[in-house]
Amino acid sequence: KELVLVLYDYQEKSPREVTVKKGDILTLLNSTNKDWWKVEVDDRQGFIPAAYLKKL
């Protein structure tokens, strides 16, 4: 499984997104879309802008 580091706080703006904090380490589920990556946060799955994440 691939992990990503959150570079900036992000507040979800729709039900398909998730809220994260800078410094969080998340499981990356899908990065095929270059703009929005799907991650897992506390048993929730959702999207975050790829620019907010860095692969570890």
Rank of each mutant, 00 (worst) to 15 (best):
N30Q: 11
E40Y: 07
S31I: 06
L5M: 11
G23H: 06
T27Q: 12
V39N: 00
T27F: 12
K38L: 15
L28H: 01
E2W: 12
T27S: 10
K1H: 11
R16C: 15
D42I: 11
F47W: 15
L56M: 11
K1M: 12
V6T: 03
E17I: 03
D9H: 06
T27C: 10
V41R: 12
V18Y: 04
I25L: 07
V20T: 04
S14R: 10
A51Y: 14
L28W: 01
Y10V: 01
E17S: 06
K1A: 13
E12V: 07
L5H: 04
D42F: 15
K55L: 14
P49S: 03
G46E: 06
V39K: 00
S14E: 09
K22M: 08
S31P: 05
D42K: 14
E17H: 06
Q45F: 08
L28G: 01
A51L: 12
R44P: 00
K1C: 13
A51F: 12
L7Y: 02
D43L: 10
D35E: 15
L56P: 02
T32C: 13
D35L: 15
S14C: 09
L3G: 03
N33P: 05
A50C: 08
V20D: 00
E40P: 00
L26F: 04
D9P: 07
K54Q: 14
S14M: 08
F47Q: 03
L53G: 06
E40V: 11
E17P: 06
R16Y: 15
D35P: 03
T19F: 04
E17F: 05
A51G: 11
D42N: 14
Y52T: 07
V4N: 00
V18M: 12
G23A: 03
G23R: 02
T19K: 04
K13N: 10
T27M: 12
P15G: 09
P49V: 02
L5F: 07
Q45N: 09
L5V: 11
V6K: 00
V6Y: 01
K34W: 09
L56A: 04
K55Y: 08
L53F: 03
R44V: 07
V41P: 01
V6H: 00
I25K: 05
V6F: 01
W37F: 05
D42C: 12
W36S: 04
K22Y: 05
L7I: 08
V6S: 02
